[in-house]
Amino acid sequence: MTTAHVPLWEVFLRARNGLAHKHAGSLHAADAEMALQAARDVYTRRGEGVSIWVVPSAAIIASEPAEAGMLFEPTASKIYRHPTFYEVPDEVGHM
């Protein structure tokens, strides 16, 4: 009864002109064209988007959750990367 495996796609939507595409969900479709059509039906029934990207899920390379500490923790200690680290006298005003 089961047909051959139908590929999985990730769907990204641009909500409004000027905004970036954002992940909305995933769906199965035989090819890119059908994935776009299905994305339109499944994820934009109420004006959620003005543009759709579909990407084969298998093409996405993700970072390992177990490596999150190694990858991202070092930035937490580098407070000198933020503007508030530096002192500007009040008399100077907004900078």
Binding site: T3, A4, V6, A29, A30, D31, M34
Partner: peptide
């Protein structure tokens, strides 16, 4: 479903 996959 079969036709869609065959077409792809």
């Amino acid at each position: 479903r079969e036709a869609a996959l065959a077409h792809a």
